[in-house]
Each structure stands twice: as C-alpha cells, then as structure tokens.
C-alpha cells in the first residue's frame, strides 16, 4: 500500500485533482464545486473536533494540489451519510459519495489514520455483516463497546443496559446473537462467493485505472 502511495505522489506531483478523479470513486465531481459552502454549512457533525476540513474546503484543497493536507485530513471520515449536502448541493455534486470515495482512496493507499473511529466502525460493520450475510447486532455492539478496553466497554454497556433490555423485550434484539446464533442469510457461502467476485472485479478496475494513469 505505501508503495502505491509513493508511486501516486510521484505520478501526480502537480495534479492531485487528476489523481483523485481517477482513483477516488466520484472524484470527477470535485472540479464542479463552486465554493458556496452549502455542504459545509449543512453538515450535522460539524461540531466534532475531528472536522478539520469540510467538503467544500477539501475540494478546494484538492484543486490547489494540497495532497498531504487532504490525505492527512480527518474530514472525509466524519461523514455520517445524512445526505444533507448531497440533496442541497446547487451543483448536484454527490458530496456524500465523493467524501466516501476520498476516504476509501486514502485508506487504500495506507493514509488513513490509525484508530479513526468512523473507520473502525466501518471495518467492524463490514466484517460483521459479511460473515453471515446479515448484521449480528450484539456482536457488533460488543466489538464497538470494547474497542477501547474492557473497563470502558463495561461502563458503556451498563449505561445502555435499559435500552438493551427494552429492545430485547420488544423482540428487536436477540441475546443469542452473542453466541454467534440469531439471524443469518440463507446461503452464506453464496454471499461469500459473490463478495469475493465483486472484490476481484473492483481490484481489476482499479488496477486498470492506475495502469492508464501511469502511461502518460
């Protein structure tokens, strides 16, 4: 990964925008931004300390060729996919998707920060959901609660005890999931095969893209 990172840095020295357009999903929309700031102002998570650069600023940084600042940014991981920016953008830029695209790209080239909570959630969720083809909510919650250690995990679990019991009583949470039981999709191996195929295709696509970009 870090090798690819260096290659890209060399290849796109003066044209980070092009790198993003080619490598990040929906990256071709970055150039369409007119810097009105509606996305930045619409974002409900703006209060979070991790929000160093909102979308409109990230887009400008990309256009200014500020590769390091963008790849070091926490901004694109903060998105909660509320789609406020997406539906309001006067240029119809799919801001949410672009931000995810940039985050995914940064992750792919090994630039994602360690212990980034959104990233952790995303990875955990993915692993969990792909295991049985359906989310195991208890295990997912557990892994999130205990990510910072046993002590804080127990504390969080106690805090949420009432809500959890309520969900169980209402039949919305199956405690047996803790043991790996609970709902699964019918053809787990089938899902695994499909996902493997999708991954293979995507890798091929990305490799092809990187290849063409390299030929200039």
């Amino acid at each position: 990964m870090s090798n690819l990172n260096e290659q890209m840095a060399d290849r796109y020295k003066n044209n980070f925008l092009k790198e993003i357009e080619e490598q990040a999903e929906m990256g071709e929309w970055v150039k369409m931004c007119m810097q009105c700031g509606l996305c930045s102002g619409s974002c409900p998570t703006h209060f979070h300390s991790g929000w160093d650069h909102p979308p409109q600023e990230i887009f400008m940084l990309i256009r200014a060729g500020k590769r390091e600042e963008v790849l070091n940014s926490q901004g694109m991981y903060m998105c909660t996919s509320c789609y406020n920016c997406y539906v309001r953008c006067p240029r119809k830029v799919p801001v949410t998707h672009v931000m995810h695209g940039i985050a995914e790209y940064a992750y792919r080239i090994g630039r994602a920060p360690k212990a980034q909570p959104t990233l952790h959630l995303s990875k955990t969720f993915w692993t969990n959901a792909t295991k049985y083809g359906r989310v195991n909510e208890v295990q997912l919650t557990q892994s999130l609660y205990f990510k910072d250690g046993i002590g804080s995990g127990i504390k969080k679990a106690m805090e949420m005890q009432k809500e959890a019991l309520g969900l169980v009583m209402a039949g919305r949470l199956n405690p047996m999931e803790a043991l790996g039981m609970g709902h699964k999709c019918k053809d787990v191996s089938g899902i695994h095969k499909m996902l493997a195929k999708a991954e293979e295709l995507e890798a091929k696509n990305k490799a092809a893209k990187a290849d063409t970009a390299g030929k200039e």
Partner: peptide, 11 residues
C-alpha cells in the same frame, strides 16, 4: 459549469 466539467479550475 461546462468549463468546470472540462476541468478548468476556478479559484
């Protein structure tokens, strides 16, 4: 917009 779409950078 069409110029932006062509990749012209506006700052």
């Amino acid at each position: 917009r069409s110029a932006q779409n062509r990749g012209v950078i506006f700052s």
